[in-house]
Design a protein around this nucleic acid. Sequence first.
DNA 1: CACATGACAATTGTTAACAATTGTACGATA
DNA 2: TATCGTACAATTGTTAACAATTGTCATGTG
Lengths: 224, 224
Amino acid sequence: MPASSTISKQSFDVQTANILREMIVSGSLEAGSRLTEAKLTEQFHVSRGTIRAALQKLHNEGLVSQVPYTGWHVIAIDAQDAWELHNLRRVLDGLAARLAAENLKPEGAQQLEAAYQHLCKLCETDDAKAIANADFELHKLIVSLSGHRRLQEHYKLTEQQIRVFIASCDSEFSDYRNIGHRHAALVQAILSGDGDAAERLAKEHNATQGDALISSLRQTELQK
Amino acid sequence: MPASSTISKQSFDVQTANILREMIVSGSLEAGSRLTEAKLTEQFHVSRGTIRAALQKLHNEGLVSQVPYTGWHVIAIDAQDAWELHNLRRVLDGLAARLAAENLKPEGAQQLEAAYQHLCKLCETDDAKAIANADFELHKLIVSLSGHRRLQEHYKLTEQQIRVFIASCDSEFSDYRNIGHRHAALVQAILSGDGDAAERLAKEHNATQGDALISSLRQTELQK
DNA sequence: CACATGACAATTGTTAACAATTGTACGATA
DNA sequence: TATCGTACAATTGTTAACAATTGTCATGTG
């Protein structure tokens, strides 16, 4: 199932990993659920070796855990994990914003403007899912504009786990009408090439929202 | 070849990956050199499947690259890579220092003090390698004191590639006598629990040294 | 000589069978 | 009854053989 824009055929283990990854981050494979190689072999019609390679990949990405001679499990995010992901994303976002501002090119500015306008337009609707997606895409674009390949990799790993968390919590955004506007200052800083401001704004950006979510998580965990 | 402190036996693929990883980051396996599964099979006396699993692991860690149906190569770090690693380490170090300062416990303070003293003592000798190692260890300790498992993972990946870079460049530290003192303010900030200062100092810490190294790299690359 | 063609060697991609380990259920025993 | 041991089922760990792909080199052709 190669991307339509490319001719190159990907090996089965990569294809399988891609499908499994999407199932995990979208929540259609529940967090904490068990995966056995035999079942996956039937499901995907490839051999155990190939399935194993795919699971190894996802294991290295932090999406599944492995217990020797017993099985594989989709990760489950607890309060500590959420805290870690939140803090990690903050600094990665900050670096991305700084570099994007410092290395901005005309084409990048156009893309950024377009993504921002798109998000703002969606915020006038009630489609929470679409808004969340556009939010993710805007941040991914900033990371991409940083011109930092490894940052993109690290960011991807972090975002994947955050998506697992969101899917497992089914947490709703409280005020999706304002999401667009809350990005205004950050986008402006990048467009004006102010790296310092961009980094600071990116780090502040989701701080309050994230902190509140995590502390509420801690509460619910204590009740168990 | 499990760690001496633990009873659990690790599977062959993990053991093989550990050995190969050490060979790569130590430079005994040259950057850019080719690895074939057949050769490694002979060398380690395990099957190709196991070797493959190990190589996959290292591939996901960014230490080897893979070209379909042709082979595996140890990564080679160029100026762009060095720039990326330098920037990435800066923010990871910054976050680690902040969290370490904010969550410092008495035991952690002791360890930190000890590691710092150790580094300072070594700086009075001429053993550049030992000094560099103690430097690495001090930073790793700070990351560990952050209590952030994922940060530890991301930092490890970054540090590994930096070690490959250092091994391939064989770059000497210019003034290893001052390395100890350059850590003084950072260590002090963490010990006093000042997260803001700790983050700022950590980010400034290696900035000048890193920037100079990278720009000199860019020069040498242009000459080719 | 430049260039297409085809065979072949080298290498990775994939599979199925076998080995090792773990957890569990069941029965023996104090 | 509680506990220990043991056989067994389920599952992953490991291996070797086979399939597919790539690069190369010799050969023929305009």
